[in-house]
Design a protein around this nucleic acid. Structure first.
Length: 267
DNA sequence: CCGGATGTTCACCT
DNA sequence: GAGGTGAACATCCG
């Protein structure tokens, strides 16, 4: 569920550790580092490094370390970032107990953690119940398409040159980075476009319309605080109705993902 | 109690 | 190469 929107919030949270020095790196669950070269000791390449900067590309959070590798954090479906005991989002769909914000709970499912040296101290942790997230070294940002929060209409048009369904292409991270299942449904609903249209058959006017709604939706959901905060979200259920025209929504699988859309106004 | 659903990424197939 | 399928994971819900 962490899509661009959640990871943007994680990024803002992680800004707080810029300038701190890594005192210790803990990997309580090595599975989370399954992409790291086994001959590399993750802790030893991180310890002693100063956090130089933090940035986000799509759903990838990148922590740059002075004189060392960059650290990439991917959050899968249920990953959250916790900095100094403060979670990046209040609540994640399909995530365990939203309620008791006890510190013991925040320690559960921590798969990776950086502890920082005094005097500033503190910590940054990746908490991920389902272990679909990853910690990587020197992530290949070149493999990602343009960030959806900044994509231009020309870039979007380029990304749509395919016969694949529109929704599938919006979620292809190598073509456009940051959009996940929920945001894709919300964007297409707002733009009045069917998820199953071949992406390449959009007219130039439709591409411009999609671009406008895409950018607005990203901004909107960042402000509202989550990819689950869209207008369509409450109706993504059997019997759900289009908030715009009241038509019953259709549920189907597009590119292997559950999709909800309005057959009346999404064409 | 168990099958199905959940969303993202990647390995594998055609 | 591009597109499609299913596995990986843990938890929840009916």
């Amino acid at each position: 569920m962490p899509e661009l929107v959640e990871v943007e919030r994680y990024r803002r949270l992680a800004e707080g550790v810029v300038g701190r020095t890594v005192f210790a790196a803990e990997v309580p669950d090595p599975w989370i580092a399954r992409d790291v070269d086994p001959s590399v000791d993750l802790a030893s390449v991180l310890v002693g490094r100063r956090v130089a900067s933090v940035h986000r590309h799509g759903k990838l959070l990148v922590v740059s370390l002075g004189g060392g590798p960059t650290l990439g954090l991917r959050f899968g479906m249920t990953g959250t970032l916790v900095v100094d005991g403060e979670p990046g989002v209040d609540r994640l769909l399909r995530s365990p107990p939203p309620t008791p914000p006890a510190t013991a709970d925040l320690d559960r499912w921590v798969r990776f953690r950086l502890r920082f040296a005094r005097p500033r101290g503190g910590q940054l942790a990746l908490r991920d119940p389902r272990r679909l997230g990853r910690v990587v070294l020197d992530p290949d940002e070149g493999a990602l398409g343009p960030d959806a929060a900044a994509v231009t209409v020309a870039e979007l048009a380029g990304a749509l040159r395919t016969t694949a369904p529109l929704k599938v292409r919006l979620q292809d991270q190598s073509k456009l980075a940051g959009i996940g299942n929920l945001m894709a449904d919300e964007i297409l609903w707002r733009a009045g476009l069917s998820p199953v249209r071949p992406a390449g058959c959009l007219s130039p006017a439709e591409v411009r319309r999609l671009h406008r709604h895409l950018r607005a939706t990203v901004d909107d959901l960042v402000e509202r605080g989550g990819s689950h905060a869209g207008d369509l979200m409450a109706q993504r259920r059997p019997g759900g109705r289009c908030p715009r025209d009241g038509h019953e929504l259709v549920r189907s699988s597009v590119g292997g993902r559950t999709s909800w859309w309005c057959p009346a106004h999404q064409r």
